[in-house]
């Protein structure tokens, strides 16, 4: 999986550079996030601007990251959801769980 990880002050921005976030590659995103938690980085923005497709495994990886960040008094916020990706969050009611921003800049500024 191709991701770009960038620190912006106390917040880490993970840009997912894949068209799909699914059962094939979502485990890698989970591992990347676990590495950050182990380094004590608990404030995370996951930018999905380039992701056109997300399945239940992709959603599960983000839920796992959200739970880990929250348990460490941090937060995991999302940005750049394409309409069909957003529809999967709505179908599974996860849009009520995550704070979702139009752009990564807005998500970063919200911390």
């Amino acid at each position: 999986m191709i991701v770009k990880i960038e620190e912006s002050g106390p917040v880490v921005l993970i840009e997912v550079k894949e068209e799909r976030l699914d059962a094939h590659n979502s485990g890698e995103l989970k591992s990347q996030m676990l590495n950050l938690f182990e380094e004590g980085k608990n404030s995370i923005v996951v930018d999905l601007q380039e992701v056109r497709f997300v399945d239940s495994s992709g959603l599960g990886a983000l839920v796992s990251g959200f739970k880990n960040a929250s348990a460490r008094n941090g937060n995991l916020k999302l940005s750049g959801l394409q309409p069909q990706v957003k529809s999967m969050f709505e179908l599974t009611r996860l849009h009520r769980v995550f704070e979702i921003f139009p752009t990564a800049q807005e998500a970063l500024a919200s911390f």
Binding site: S56, L59, G60, V63, K67, L91, T92, R93
Partner: peptide, 18 residues
């Protein structure tokens, strides 16, 4: 799925059925 319970798994079959 229990929407209040943030389980990592268990949404796939729900998505198919929906």
């Amino acid at each position: 799925p229990d929407f209040e319970d943030l389980d990592e798994h268990g949404r796939g079959v729900y998505i198919i059925r929906s």
